[in-house]
């Protein structure tokens, strides 16, 4: 690993990559298995400015030279970090990305711009790490589907007003579609394409 002095702007990655990535993965796996549940990624990491520790830990755990990444303009500063710590190619356009770091607050977020997989290989779809503000305080949304016993109400904050509409449209393409990992602070919540979205208000 290169010394910090030669890379002054670059934060550190995992302290003990083998065990830390295993711990992170188990949280991500649990989160993907139980959509809407909040999981904490406890590893110490110096993420680039404006990128949450959780978002960076997800990428450190899953990304390498085989998985091209696309970064939303707001997170462009993470490119050097990803190239250095993961060896991941950073793409100009989202369509060929395996992973992406996107901004949930952005009106420009277009889930349809990413690879949804194809009928024979729906697994080839992109996985999106979605930056948001927190997992409380936002509008109530009711989720149901695989991994959820009955339904669950979640209220992530700092998301664009149309965000859940886009997620519902993504679910409508099932079994195609992208899978979302929301990240805020040290925590994540997954919304895979299999999760059905209903506004809690509509249910009343």
């Amino acid at each position: 690993m290169q010394s910090m002095s030669s890379q002054p702007q670059l934060g550190k990655g995992f302290d003990e990559p083998v065990l830390a990535s295993q711990r992170c993965f188990r949280q991500i796996l649990a989160a993907m298995s139980e959509p809407g549940s909040v999981h904490r990624l406890g590893e110490d990491v110096e993420s680039p400015t404006g990128v949450s520790a959780a978002a960076m830990l997800v990428l450190l755990t899953l990304v390498d030279h085989e998985t091209p990444v696309w970064l939303a303009p707001r997170f462009a500063s993470a490119a050097t970090y990803l190239r250095f710590h993961c060896g991941a190619p950073v793409l100009e356009a989202p369509s060929a990305a395996t992973f992406a770091l996107v901004d949930g607050a952005s009106v420009d977020l277009d889930l349809g711009a990413f690879n949804p997989g194809d009928d024979r290989y729906p697994d080839r779809s992109a996985t999106l790490v979605v930056g948001c503000a927190a997992f409380e305080g936002g509008r109530d949304v009711s989720l149901s589907g695989p991994g959820i016993r009955g339904d669950i109400t979640v209220s992530p904050a700092g998301l664009d007003a149309a965000f859940w509409q886009k997620v519902a449209a993504n679910n409508a393409r099932y079994p195609l579609g992208v899978d979302l990992i929301l990240a805020a602070g040290n925590e994540i919540m997954c919304i895979p394409r299999s999760t059905r979205i209903a506004r809690a208000a509509e249910a009343c």
Partner: peptide, 13 residues
Amino acid sequence: RMVRRALLKAVAV
């Protein structure tokens, strides 16, 4: 990492 990525897609579908 390769197996883990496959596992997450398997869980999603």
